[in-house]
Nucleic acid binder design. Sequence first.
DNA 1: TTACCTGCAAACTGTTTGCCGCTGT
DNA 2: ACAGCGGCAAACAGTTTGCAGGTAA
Lengths: 140, 140
Amino acid sequence: MTLQRQIILDAIESLPGHITAEAVYARVRARYPQVNLSTVYRTLEFLEELDLVRHTHFDDGVARWHGVDEQPHQHLVCRRCGSEQELELSLLSPLDHELQQRYGFHADLAHFALVGLCAACYANTGAPSGGEAAAPSTSS
Amino acid sequence: MTLQRQIILDAIESLPGHITAEAVYARVRARYPQVNLSTVYRTLEFLEELDLVRHTHFDDGVARWHGVDEQPHQHLVCRRCGSEQELELSLLSPLDHELQQRYGFHADLAHFALVGLCAACYANTGAPSGGEAAAPSTSS
DNA sequence: TTACCTGCAAACTGTTTGCCGCTGT
DNA sequence: ACAGCGGCAAACAGTTTGCAGGTAA
């Protein structure tokens, strides 16, 4: 566990939410400008093997990273207005159990975000709702 | 609906499963060599707006396309041996209903494949099982 | 003429790799 | 001396875009 690995791990764990590799890089570089982006990627891979961090794919295809101590949870991403909300884990566990019993498959249900239409956008299908909560993300 | 759009739509619908943009391109080009890859991408986007095709993201991040008449279903992808199996839709509908009731969220649950460990790989964690069903995909 | 569609080539993004020097043991 | 790590730049894959010519109404 070298210095830069420690720094990168800290950068991820110091944040409650998810963070892209680029953002990790930005955070690290702010204090330690000599650290390289490829080091960030290599370290993320390394830390994931050690089960210290994990990544999740959101709608835009960019991986987001988070520490393992983070509560396991899931995200609902609206494909129209781009809004995100967190999901109670309890909703996923029945599915998880089913998958294990029926298929013996141990799913990492948090690996991908859940995509769809939020209530507001579903209501007035066709036009984005008033809730332009986030940047109108690239529609995946 | 131009000729190439028709051709591309046919290429997708003529196949029961999923197909990457590159593969659509290859299929189309086999008969009509002058069609361009960017046309394929533009047409896929166009056809998706018309709700004639949809796409799903698998573990490797590459989009796969399929016709809408295709049975909606989901895939289980093993992150270790790369094997894939189809998933009974019925397992997902309870979650779907929950999401609608609790959050008003209308999820497209087939948009992303489900990632995890298949029974065999879970059994002997650490080493790939005998079931090397598919190419050991990039671990996403 | 007008609007749209297409082919081509070039750009762009996130991510990965090869190489080589540096470091600690 | 050795092994591993990190910096740099270049490569890579999939996808997107700008532009100019073409086609149909």
